[in-house]
């Protein structure tokens, strides 16, 4: 007999990281806990990650989404780089960006393929919803 299909859908696996030098990890840590408490498995990479390492981790961990936290001007260069590096590796993993993102930068980030952008102080529901819908809308 073959086993019946597993009854529950497996938890979402989300890689959380900060790219580059920026050491402000308060938001990233809060989001890690919010996602854990919403039943997600968070692969927490924390500070000082390179784009290439995040791609390698997404492959090895078979992650459903990447969450980046940005607290300085880097978001306009680093977030698009992250999206591009994933696509170059043949991955369509959605990238969600949180942190201090001025309104004027939201549209350019969307154009660059960022799936969702969360402002500072986003609620638990907003964070979880953003990640889930980014994953769901990925073919």
């Amino acid at each position: 007999m073959s086993g019946p299909p597993s009854s529950e859908t497996p938890p979402l696996r989300v890689v959380l990281a900060k790219l580059g030098f920026d050491g402000h990890d308060r938001g990233l840590r809060v989001v890690a806990r919010l996602l854990r408490d919403a039943g997600c498995e968070v692969i927490y990479l924390g500070l000082r990650q390179s784009v290439d390492n995040v791609v390698a981790v997404v492959e090895q961990e078979d992650a459903d989404a990447v969450g980046l936290s940005m607290h300085n001007a880097g978001h306009l260069t680093l977030a698009p780089k992250m999206v591009q590096a994933l696509r170059d590796a043949g991955l369509d993993t959605p990238v969600v960006v949180g942190g201090i993102i001025p309104d004027v930068d939201v549209e350019p980030l969307r154009q660059a393929g960022v799936a969702a952008i969360l402002g500072p102080g986003a609620s638990a529901e907003e964070v979880v919803h953003a990640v889930r819908s980014a994953v769901d809308s990925t073919p």
Binding site: L19, G20, F21, R48, S50, N72, A73, G74, L76, T77, L78
Partner: peptide, 10 residues
Amino acid sequence: EWSEGEVGRA
């Protein structure tokens, strides 16, 4: 390599 965008900024 990580200095891009950060030099002289803060």
